[in-house]
Structures are given as structure tokens and as C-alpha cells.
Design a protein around this nucleic acid. Structure first.
Lengths: 315, 315
DNA sequence: ATGAAAGCGCTAACAC
DNA sequence: GTGTTAGCGCTTTCAT
């Protein structure tokens, strides 16, 4: 007990006793057992996160933001990959809850009813990310995918594009991509542009799938003057494919992306895209979570971090 | 006790009893407490990993490979970022050991003496990654950074380049980049090429730092006909910067990278680089670890996954 | 095939 | 200021 106090509340011990204990701790090389500590104190100091994949830099940069905030507070991050499947997500969350994490971070707001039930029962602080909704499970840090897509379509229309194709990945982050798709379709109609045309390419978003989209579009006989990708990685792949095939961007077609990856601004032509501050989403989520894990309650349960249309050269 | 058996060794129970228990488990929504389980059984089912950063896709793709292997076995991954500092790494490891992980994954073979002592005392399965050494802490999955760099210099020399500059990041993965640098310098001398010239750009590797390197090289009055970057991200940034500035690649200068990122093959010109199979490193490390965590011992403690010079257009 | 006893390494609560 | 007692939710071991 005295050792426990020397380590956690040293001010409660007399100086001589404290020094004796800490000396002993050092010479013996004692490492407190956090497992036992967790069991006894009912707090694990663990934050669990479920992300679709680490392959997409969007998510890994966000995780870096989370780590930046929670690591100094002594929390550890435990990570699981859902591979974009909400039902596998439920199993992962169930397993993670067995670790009794003090907080949980989820990507997206689309979850199975089972997941929601699980989490309400567990009654732990939860933050959902990357999207907006009226009834989050608990807390939320995101932006409106619908409005962001609409804003991009408006920009494209303002620069004279009328037949804008939307390209989305299939295995992609279904729900959020769906929001962007709806924003795109609504804007196309509202602005009196061409018939909405959405192309779904197989597999998760990648440079290759963006290039493949360009190939498929040119095989189709319909005309188009701009392509709006639901993800910067695909859009970058498309820009490079156009370059390889001698298709002029933005001369022949305009290309726009989503996310503002580090690469995007450096492409030739620089990619027009919607900027999302991934680091901020991570840091903000971690801050909310930290507050709640320390028993305080944040002013707002829902934080809209917004977005910004980056008008560059490609469209 | 009967519940415990029903969950872990159902074959030990009679069918009626087993069904009764599992039914009850389901209706009550019982989730076993892995914290208590860990304390009692002295096995946590946790694999801890310390990586420099999630920002570089090299590491996140490797982590995906690790997850792919350990998740199906029921292990959870707990993650810490060292930001390339070996002394902060030691503190992180010490903290992680408090969680009593069943295995540990480290990037690199350069660790402080304190770290080595800590890990030998903890006597848990450890895998080091990304490099080769004669005395790993425990197990090792990597490749020779020295030989890989030499192979690239040989390729550049074979295509007529003589004044090859080497560019490395400063905050970079110091030890491994150092291996590549030594391989570069040795090869330059051995092949009788120009005087070795290594440029160190500030900060971690990024598209921006690669572009910055090109700017700095052209400010210098020395001549060069090829640039060998210690990382594909920087090399890609350089290729794009050359494109923006009208510098012909490979006509005016050759550019080579390291790692073979997904982007590299799609650049125009496609990037010549050294392919490292990051997913394989992750999966291989996870497999070794899994064996050891289950009490078996793998045939080899050291696995050289090799590398492959990808001769493409940029050099 | 099932149950009972003891204990994993810590901390909460209370005594002194 | 320091020590004592009890117990966190499981598993190990041994008994029946």
C-alpha cells in the first residue's frame, strides 16, 4: 500500500519514507502491473479505436492526432480494423469491450443496432468520427459529407462544368461515401446540371482504382467534362492516369477529389479537393474523450469541424 | 467455473449443462472480463507495437499485415508512436510492459542499452523489424539496408549515372537510413563514381521535403546526374517538383527512391525504387510472434525478407 | 462432469 | 503518515 501511494500520491508520504520506497523501486526494477491495477481500480487507461483500415492515410493521420492527445495523459491505444464492414465491426467492438476500455473511438455514424445496444449497455464514453448525425451514440466529431459534396459540385458548376461524374469505391466507407453521393446528386439536380452519373469501382479506394475509373469512363460512350472522386487517393490516381494517357487536365476534363491528402497539392496539376483536417478530428475526439474519462462533461457533444473547398488547378 | 469452462473448453461439459450456460450467457449479455482473465491466467492476449509514426504509409501497411495475422488468433494490438526517438522509445516500452503484453514488436534494431536490458528482463517474445543485425534482442524480420542501397547505386551506375547524390530525412528513421547511407557511400567508392554527397533535409520524410531537396540541390553549384532518396515519399515529391519546374526526368537527372510505395509505379515517370514487401514483414513478424506466444519455437529467429530493385522510368 | 478453495497484484476504505 | 482488511472477476488446482 505504501508503495502504491509512493507511486501515485507521493505527497501523502513523508519524505524519508517516500525516498526509501522509490529507491527500492528503482533498484529492484519494479514495474507496476497495470492489469492488476485495472482490475482493482476499475479503470484500465485504455482507449480503443475501430478504424476501417490503416492503409488509407486519412485514418492513420487521424490516429496520430489521437495519440498526440492521449499518450501524454498516460492512456494507451488499442486498435482494431473493421475493413469497412459494419457487422464485423460489431464483433470487434464486443471483443474490445472485454478489455474494459475507458473510452472508445469509432469511424462513421452507421452502426448495426446490435452495436448501438452494446455500447449503450456498456455506458462508456464513445466518440464517432467523420460524419454528422442527429443522434450520435454519445459524442461526435465530424463534418457534413452531404454539404461538402454539394459545395464541390457548386464549385465545378461555377467553373463551367455541367456533366460531372461521381466516382466512389465499392468496398469504401459505405455510409460516408453515400452522404457524399447524395450531396452530389442533389446538387446536380438543383443546379440544373446533367443527369447524375455515379460510377462505383471495385475494391477499396487506391491509386489503381482511380486510374481504372478513368479507363472505364472513357470506354463508356456518354460524355462528361468533370470527374468528382469521393477520395483523394483515387483522384490522384486519375490525374496520373490522365497524364500517362495524354488527357489534358483541366483542359479536357476537370478532376476533383475529397480529403486533401498531402500529395494532392503537389500533383501537376494540383488537385482541387475538399480539405478535411484529419489531425484536428483526431485531437478533438481525444480531447472530448479525455474530458469524459476524467468525469467532466464537455460543453458540446457534437462538434462540426467543417471543411474547405480547395480550388486548385485540376478543376 | 462451469461458465468459464462452457466458454473456453465446452467439450468438458455435458451437452445439457453446456446449453444451459450458453443460453444464460446470451440472455444476460455477459461479456467475460479480459482484465480479470489476464490477471488470473497470466496471459493478456495483447501484442504491443512501437512504430515511429503512422504518418508514413510504410508503417501503417506493415501494421495492417500484423493485424491480419494476429486478430484472427484473438490477440489485440496496442500501439505507441516513438516519433523516431530511441530514448522516448525506451519510456514507451517500459509503460507498455506494465500492460504485460504477450509479445512485442519494434521497428528497427537500434535501441538504447536500457531498452535491451528491460526486454531481456521481461523475457517476452520480441520481434525487431526493417533491418538486419547479428544480435537481435530476440527475433528479427528485415532486410539489409546496406545491401539494398548498394544495389540501387549499382543500377544507377549501370545506366550511366556517375554523380549520384543521396538525400535522407533528418528526423528520419536514423539507424536504418544510416545503413542505406553507408551502402551508398561504399558503393560510390567501390564503383569509382563521383565523391559521395549526402544531403540531409530537415524534418521527417514527406512529399514537401523531397521537393525541397530538389530546390536545395539546384541552388548548390556542384553537378549531379542522379538523386537517390532514402524514401519513396520524398522521391515522389521530387519527381513532381521536377515536373513542375520543367526538369526532365530521367533526361536531365535520374531519380530513385526506396520502399516502393503504391504511388511510385503510377508516377510519370514511374519511379525506380527498391521494393520492400511491408505487408509481408508484418505478417511474417506476427507469425513468428504467434508461434512463440503459443510456446512453440520457430525454426529461424532471423528472417531476411530481401528486397528487389524495381527498374522503372525515372532512373 | 461439476464444484470449492485459493490466489493472481493491485487499490478502496478504514483503522491506528 | 502508515498499515490492515477485503475484494476486483477470473483461472488453477484439487476434490467429489
Amino acid at each position: 500500500m505504501t508503495v502504491s501511494r509512493a507511486l501515485h500520491r507521493p505527497e501523502l508520504l513523508s519524505k524519508p519514507m517516500r525516498d526509501r520506497v522509490l529507491d527500492a523501486v528503482r533498484t529492484v526494477g519494479y514495474t507496476p502491473d497495470l492489469v492488476a491495477q485495472s482490475l482493482a481500480s476499475n479503470r484500465t487507461g485504455i482507449v480503443a479505436a475501430v478504424v476501417p483500415t490503416l492503409g488509407n492515410p486519412l485514418f492513420s493521420e487521424m490516429l496520430d492526432g489521437i495519440q498526440e492527445k492521449i499518450a501524454p495523459l498516460g492512456y494507451h491505444l488499442i486498435l482494431a480494423n473493421s475493413h469497412y464492414a459494419t457487422d464485423s465491426e460489431e464483433a470487434l467492438i464486443a471483443a474490445l469491450l472485454g478489455r474494459r476500455p475507458d473510452g472508445l473511438i469509432l469511424v462513421g455514424v452507421a452502426h448495426t443496432p446490435g452495436t448501438r445496444a452494446l455500447l449503450h449497455a456498456a455506458a462508456l464514453p464513445v466518440v464517432e468520427l467523420w460524419d454528422l448525425t442527429d443522434d450520435p451514440i454519445d459524442m461526435l466529431v465530424g463534418f457534413s459529407n452531404v454539404r461538402a459534396a454539394r459545395a464541390m459540385v457548386e464549385h465545378l458548376a461555377a467553373t463551367g462544368r455541367r456533366n460531372i461524374v461521381h466516382v466512389t469505391g465499392s468496398a469504401g466507407d459505405a455510409a460516408r461515401a453515400l452522404g457524399r453521393r447524395r450531396g452530389y446528386e442533389a446538387a446536380m439536380k438543383q443546379l440544373g446540371l446533367g443527369e447524375p452519373w455515379t460510377l462505383e469501382v471495385a475494391g477499396p479506394s487506391s491509386y489503381a482504382s482511380g486510374a481504372e475509373a478513368i479507363r472505364m469512363l472513357y470506354k463508356d460512350r456518354r460524355t462528361f467534362d468533370a470527374v468528382f472522386f469521393s477520395d483523394d487517393v483515387m483522384a490522384a490516381g486519375a490525374v496520373l492516369e490522365c497524364q500517362a494517357r495524354g488527357i489534358a487536365v483541366p483542359g479536357q476534363i476537370g478532376i476533383a477529389g475529397f480529403g486533401d491528402a498531402e500529395l494532392s497539392a503537389r500533383l501537376c496539376p494540383a488537385l482541387t479537393t475538399v480539405r478535411i483536417d484529419r489531425g484536428q478530428i483526431g485531437r478533438c475526439a481525444a480531447t472530448l474523450l479525455a474530458l469524459r474519462m476524467q468525469g467532466k462533461s464537455p460543453a458540446d457533444r457534437i462538434i462540426d469541424v467543417g471543411f474547405c473547398v480547395m480550388k486548385r488547378e485540376s478543376a
